[in-house]
């Protein structure tokens, strides 16, 4: 761009009216001052040792080092599947095996990380940090998906008891803060389950997240279901399909496709909400940060740690929101 074009752009975008010009000058002033302060803080005042020393803890917690190869394999599988999925979405060639591939790899990855069935087990207390955040977020969304669909269908049901139970559940869960639900899951679940069933803390945390997420998902899916014209249902009946086939083959595929952007938004929210599990004692990314900050040598390194952890969360959430925007255009 030559000098004239630059001046034209400046004039149009930054200085077109008198108050815009003032705004621009003020903003530039603040930006320069802010950037100077921030950079001098980052380079000279902040002590980044806390991050460097604890990087492993942040990312995978106390997961045994000799089992890291399993994590690398999992990452490899995920990257591979993701690129295939993106490729097929972009080229609009639907691949029949993809959903099945994702489902299988989900179980495989859980097996790799957790062990059992031939592999040495890794106690779930050792999964900490980003690893735990990811495992909990993905597991919760995977389980809450069929649950949410069932709730949405139940909400439309003609059966009085089923319909009202679903409405009650959805409205109560949506009216409570997540921390309340987690409290209920941590405290009440042991009380209402028979004595011989005990759930460890991670499972109770996942249960709380899942129950929470399912209610919101149900509302999203309900929106999709209501957008399907009645004629689709009638056409299905007219060609002789029964209600279950109509739901599985005709209604749900269309409804779910319509709510995919909302679903991705919900996953982003769930990913952020895993941070609340730190309050009930789980050491996911936020929890392990607080644990690290409690060590005497790293006291007062709040800004460094929280900014680093914030960056990690941000990278994941922002990428997902970009994917969602891309999906909406498809």
């Amino acid at each position: 761009m030559n000098q004239n074009q630059i001046i034209k752009w400046l004039r149009k975008n930054l200085f077109d009216t008198w108050y815009n010009s003032i705004l621009t000058i003020v903003c530039v002033f603040l930006l320069v001052w802010g950037a100077k302060s921030i950079f001098s803080w980052i380079l000279f005042i902040a002590q980044w040792k806390v991050i460097a020393v604890n990087l492993q803890l942040f990312l995978v917690g106390r997961y045994p080092e000799q089992m890291y190869w399993r994590l690398w394999v999992s990452i490899f599988i995920i990257l591979g599947l993701t690129s295939v999925t993106i490729g097929s979405l972009v080229k609009k060639i639907p691949n029949r095996w993809l959903p099945l591939a994702w489902a299988i790899s989900f179980s495989v990855i859980l097996w790799l990380i957790g062990g059992g069935l031939g592999l040495q087990a890794a106690d779930s207390n050792l999964w900490n940090g980003l690893l735990l955040t990811l495992v909990m977020a993905v597991t919760s969304i995977v389980i809450s998906f069929p649950l949410g669909v069932l709730l949405a269908l139940g909400r439309q049901s003609k059966l009085f008891v089923v319909r009202n139970f679903c409405i009650l559940y959805i409205e109560i869960v949506r009216g409570l803060p997540l921390i309340g639900i987690l409290f209920i899951a941590q405290v009440m679940l042991p009380l209402v389950l028979p004595d011989d069933i005990t759930l460890d803390r991670v499972l109770r945390g996942i249960a709380g997240l899942t129950l929470f997420s399912a209610a919101y998902l149900a509302e999203n899916v309900r929106g999709g279901l209501q957008s399907i014209p009645r004629g689709q249902f009638e056409a299905g009946k007219a060609i002789g399909l029964n209600s279950i086939y109509i739901m599985l083959l005709i209604i749900l595929p269309q409804a779910l496709r319509a709510v995919i952007p909302a679903l991705v938004g919900q996953f982003i929210g769930l990913f952020k909400d895993t941070s609340l599990l730190s309050i009930v004692g789980l050491l996911e990314l936020t929890g392990i940060s607080r644990s690290i900050l409690a060590q005497p040598e790293f006291l007062n390194r709040y800004a460094e740690v929280y900014l680093f952890v914030g960056l990690l969360y941000w990278v994941f959430c922002y990428s997902m929101s970009l994917v969602s925007q891309r999906l909406e255009k498809v």
């Binding site: 952020k272 936020t286 914030g310 941000w314 959430c317």
Partner: peptide
């Protein structure tokens, strides 16, 4: 929007 409220 893309960082958890708790962290903030």
């Amino acid at each position: 929007r893309n960082t958890p409220l708790l962290l903030q």
